[in-house]
Amino acid sequence: MRVFITLFLSLLVFAGCTHLQSVSTTSIPAQRGRKVQASSDKIIFLGFNFNNDYVDAMVQDLARQCPNGKVEGLLTKQEDVDYFLYIVWKSQVTASGYCVSGTVASNAKGRNPGSDEAQDPQTPEAAQ
């Protein structure tokens, strides 16, 4: 019984509770073949954190994973993982998206591929 109580308490104390701080997303591209992801985190002890520069490297990381292309459909998630009674916690930012090459799959005109609206507005058919 004592062992069970100890195990239960250990689980409570040492398991990391996560708190979602913010989520944001950009428009999802039609071409979703290649997924890219970057993550950045920092361990914070007793709230002593003097800068948040650790998130800056994510852009370069994502750009490196998608050379000569664009990263679209970016889902940015920020969360805190509490390890021990808010004495030690981890602040983590994760960004995941899709690498699309050049202008082919960017669907920049904001139309649904395959739908009737997919015609170019410059063409006479679309203008009618």
Binding site: S24, N49, V59, C66, L74
Partner: peptide, 14 residues
């Protein structure tokens, strides 16, 4: 002490 509230990324052109 610096507190991070929100981070948001726009589309990335490499």
């Amino acid at each position: 002490c610096s507190i991070l509230h929100k981070t948001q990324l726009s589309e990335i052109d490499s």
